[in-house]
Design a protein around this nucleic acid. Structure first.
Lengths: 257, 257
DNA sequence: TAAATGTTGTTATAGCAAAAACAACATGAG
DNA sequence: CTCATGTTGTTTTTGCTATAACAACATTTA
């Protein structure tokens, strides 16, 4: 019952993000456990107050997750889980499509007044969020990708994306090590950083700099306390600064290769 | 602004079922309209109280839908809509998967104590819900599908599914008309009901009976007032009743073909 | 310069609606 | 009758919504 309960709570959470309330989730789970239960049994199994079970079941019936018997007392039956989840997902997906279309229409129409936004520097927080933005950035590169990469965190996620782009854009990487074979059409310089020097030990986020198409720069910086954060900009000065940074370390890496 | 507002409300609704609150949706939409806006501009564009804009933006940043500039005042930038929606969907989908897996595990484990559930008759309400259940029912048929079908409502949806099954299970249909060609491996008898008789005019839901594998029956019955509802059962008596019903009409249809 | 004004970001708090929890009553089968 | 069922109505809680007030800072004006 402990592992069960644990598991059950997880499922309930997942169901909640599919649009069910806590009670709806609990009742549905209880019904999956013993199909054909009565309201009272559901109440006992799920811990949901007996009187609340009825309106909750009504909602579940509306959502086509439960059906009722004609007997008295009524018995309730869950739709098979995969069917039920699929049914919920279907309606969410259709909302996703309509949201995406609507938003894209607006996004295209407004066509970005270019109000100097490209002079700003944008922040992103959280490793997961940064990963998404970064992958998006490099997967939209049209000319060149230059990477200065002294951090293990995202290595695995980035390499496959680079592989995809390696024939269409020029790729140059400076890093401390590389697992597997280096693709021919990529220029990779492997160079351990000078120990205990500026860059610091490799385990810390020494530095991660992405320069894309010579016009966009993304820099990842993490501090143990505040978590990882990243800066992104298309601002002239910002890009130039990190281009110089890149040039310096890139020649350093080439020299003593 | 009217059509805009209309559209915007629709998008907001869609975004809400992706897990955003009303304000989160409004703020995000406003940001898509003018990227790089300040908090105050967002407030003006979205109608969200200025003080509420800040916590809402925080949540959106967490969800990786928005990034911030380092300037003062801060400027905010939306993630591109398709990316943002995709990001939301990804997390929902992963929840869907974990819910489905968890529920299926429970569903399989409990293996249906066969506590006489199969003797019960289950109700389903609403045309959409019935359609889903019905398609599921026939798509899981293993031996035979026998259909008595005097109603236009679901015809279009059902025929394609029958097409798929026509080689693996025996299909017999009695209905009042059939659009397109009748597949060879299906037995279809077309027979107009006797006008003004028991069955009533074809426009009403004269009768829809599905018999699957000789052991499951689903009957659709609609009344103008209460909407459409359906009964499903694997109960002996229920199935036998509608098997007799089927036999009668099927021979009637064959006779004067 | 100094006071007045306006803006930004933050905090506190009241309002509100949906859901959760409880209590009371009506019904109906055994 | 009696117990469990089913229904109804009310209260509490919760999370979002909404408003007001405030300090910090920048901008304007005397």
């Amino acid at each position: 019952m402990d592992e069960q309960g644990e598991n059950q709570a997880t499922i309930a959470e997942s169901l909640k993000s599919l649009g069910l309330t806590k009670y709806e989730a609990l009742v549905y789970i209880a019904l999956v456990r013993v199909a054909g239960a009565t309201a009272t049994e559901i109440h006992e199994l799920s811990g949901v107050p007996r009187a609340s079970v009825y309106p909750v079941l009504d909602r579940l019936i509306q959502k086509n997750l439960v059906s009722v018997s004609n007997t008295s007392p009524k018995h309730f039956n869950p739709v098979r889980p995969d069917e039920g989840v699929a049914s919920l997902m279907k309606s969410i997906e259709s909302d996703a499509v309509s949201a995406r279309e609507g938003l894209n229409r607006i996004y295209m129409e407004c066509a970005h007044f270019e109000r100097g936004d490209q002079e700003l520097i944008w922040s992103t927080y959280g490793e997961e969020n940064i990963r998404i933005r970064l992958l998006d950035l490099i997967s939209h590169a049209t000319e060149s990708i230059r990477i200065f990469f002294y951090w293990g965190g995202l290595r695995k996620q980035i390499i496959p994306v680079l592989e995809e782009k390696k024939n269409s854009v020029s790729i140059e990487v400076v890093t401390d090590h590389w697992e597997g074979e280096i693709p021919e059409s990529m220029n990779v310089w492997i160079k351990k950083p000078p120990g205990g020097h500026d860059i610091g030990p490799a385990k810390s986020l020494g530095g991660v700099v992405f320069l894309v198409d010579g016009s966009k720069a993304m820099v990842i910086m993490g501090s143990e306390e505040e978590g990882t954060s990243a800066l992104y900009s298309e601002a002239r000065g910002f890009v130039r600064f990190f281009t110089v940074y890149w040039n310096f370390f890139s020649s350093w890496a080439r020299k003593k290769a």
